[in-house]
Amino acid sequence: MSITEFLQALESTAFATAVREGAILFPFAESLHVVALAFVIGTVVFVDLRLLGLASRNQPVTRLTNDLLPWTWGAFVLAAITGLSLFSSTPERYFTNTFFRWKFFFMFLAGVNMLVFHFVTQKNVKEWDNDPVPPTPARVAGALSILFWACVIVFGRWVGFTL
């Protein structure tokens, strides 16, 4: 099955048709998408600001991440489900949209940045968990994360104007 065939099959599902043709389902999924992404990006930025040494400086880094990130992942799942619902309404139009592709490129970069932080930078977190200003690699991870997620928002918003 080619990508085009897959997108067409997705578009012809009963669910996609309901999202596309109903008056309520699309705006509802879109609003829920904003609720979810607001929580994802807000809580990620809280962690990023801590890594930059700009906020929550009296908190151990791992306490903040342990408190916030499970909720962040929950909201991310909601953003993914609602996002996929919106995508399914007109899959080919999203898939071929340049801004949509840039959005996912930056989400990919945010993911890579997160993995590098998690598996490399954070390995010796015990040594700097309580430092008000974490070491340079952690600060770089925080700054890149804010940059990449801001790009995700900007390109995501443009999709709505260019479909």
Partner: peptide, 29 residues
């Protein structure tokens, strides 16, 4: 779209900050 992007980034911080306090009040976080 540019101003809307700033609006979304701002509301993300407003919403998340408020919800963290609400969740703590509810005993969930």
């Amino acid at each position: 779209p540019a101003i809307q992007s700033v609006h979304i980034m701002s509301l993300a911080i407003v919403f998340s900050s408020a919800l963290v306090v609400d969740f703590r009040m509810l005993g969930l976080m």
